[in-house]
Design a protein around this nucleic acid. Sequence first.
DNA 1: TGATTGACCAACT
DNA 2: CAGTTGGCCAATC
Length: 112
Amino acid sequence: MNEDISFFEQVYQVAQLIPYGRVTSYGAIAAYLGSKGSARMVGWAMNGSHTSKQSIPAHRVVNRNGMLTGKAHFGAPDIMQQLLENEGIKVKNDQIIDFEKHFWDPSKELNI
DNA sequence: TGATTGACCAACT
DNA sequence: CAGTTGGCCAATC
């Protein structure tokens, strides 16, 4: 299933599958989708996430270092951090505390 | 239509 | 150890 949808749609689907209080990385999503795209494509997909009719929890997607690189795209630089803290994730200096502890790997949690 | 950029990652110098 | 470069694919200028 979901073979006819574009790479962007797949990124949206995975992003929505991220559980509450969990985060993942752009590269992890790209790796889950396979050779269909790279980490930059995930970033591009998130760039268009706000234009999508669906609600994309883009705040749960961060870079490999657990740093909130895309916080500037949430309309306000503090929105992303507030959302993460609201889910019980500690954020300090635009970086997630215990990132690997909250890390959610789609290729592991989701049985391909 | 060619060149540049982009919410990244990893390797190389 | 830190800075630079290449690569991925798509969208914008």
